[in-house]
Amino acid sequence: MDALTTTLVELMGPDVDWKQVLLIGMSPIFVIAFLVEWQVMRGRGQRAQFEWRDILANLSLGGSYQVFEIGAHILITGVATAWVYQHRLFDVPINAWTIIPIFIGVEFCYYWFHRSSHRVRWFWSAHVVHHSSERMNFTTAMRQSLLYSITGWWLFFCPLIFLGVPPAVVFFLYAVDLAYQYFVHTESVGKLPRWFEYVFDTPSNHRVHHGRNPQYIDRNYGGVLILFDRWFGTYEAEQEKVEYGIATRQPHSHNFLVLNFHEFIDMWRDVLRRGPVGQRLKHLFMPPQWERPGSALPENGRAFATDVTDTRG
């Protein structure tokens, strides 16, 4: 273990990104789980959710996210959170008595990060990548954005760090949260026992989150727990069949650059259009569907065509 830690410090510097260490370490398990899922669904004659160009896009987005997050941690996230920790209020001990409360705190921060990623366009410009597939299988969980660290996912976890939880602990537990979420991106599992569905995020609960059916939009933000959704009024049970994708502007593309940057570029084009500065800046913090009255940008003026099939791969 000491040799592994030394190697990681040599590669990443003194502030190791334990989030990426765990997620990269879990990657073989993720791949095996997907192969099992594919075989199960194949045996049931239900292969509609497996389209290989979509799966390859998911894998390329997941792999690039892993690499980019390591660099972003060295340059941005690790530096910023280390500064916050230097000004912490307390020293929170890490032991068997505190680890579960800390994890619940991480889940609470994640809930608000995830909710903001749907309701604030600045954060949505990164998170939109995760919702851009119109299919659901385990590899959909890998559909992640290069922009997460730039738009500031880590800001939502700074309150825990400011209270005195070491950043390495926060990020490791966040990785546990993300690793769990991989296994809720599937149609191979129906509804689980009622008590489990009530407390935890499950495949059924998370399918709702990816739905663009009107009653499913902006629901079920929880990562491991679904309790905060129940308490804060954002829970919706799965009833009718889920239609996956984006409710606003769906990019029909497998192109790596289109998927990563289409919404980010469109957001800034909206900001730079002529008009009162206050109205222009609202494009950054209003919900993704918000438009200035009477000045919506036409689809042919957006960075990449949406609702049009992109054949560039």
Rank of each mutant, 00 (worst) to 15 (best):
D2F: 11
T7D: 05
L11Y: 12
L11H: 04
D15N: 11
V16K: 00
K19C: 02
S27K: 09
I29L: 15
F30C: 02
I32Q: 03
A33Q: 09
V36W: 07
Q46P: 01
Q49A: 08
W52S: 08
R53A: 09
I55V: 14
L59V: 06
S60M: 11
L61M: 13
L61Q: 12
S64N: 04
S64L: 10
I70K: 04
A80T: 14
W83F: 11
L89F: 15
F90N: 07
V92E: 05
I94L: 13
N95D: 11
E107G: 10
F108T: 02
F113R: 00
S116D: 11
S117P: 06
H118F: 02
R119N: 15
R119H: 14
W122M: 00
W124T: 11
A126S: 15
H127W: 02
H131I: 14
S132E: 14
R135Q: 11
T140H: 10
A141N: 10
S145R: 13
Y148G: 13
C158Q: 14
L160N: 13
F162D: 01
F172N: 08
L173A: 10
V176I: 14
D177H: 15
A179C: 12
Q181L: 06
Y182S: 00
H185C: 10
E187I: 08
R194E: 08
T202L: 03
H206S: 06
N213R: 13
Y216N: 01
D218R: 12
N220S: 06
V224F: 14
L227P: 06
G233C: 08
Y235L: 02
Y235K: 01
E236A: 12
E243G: 00
T248R: 04
N255L: 08
N255Y: 11
L257K: 05
F261W: 06
V271L: 08
L272D: 06
L272I: 00
P276T: 09
L281P: 05
M286G: 00
S295F: 10
N300E: 15
A303N: 12
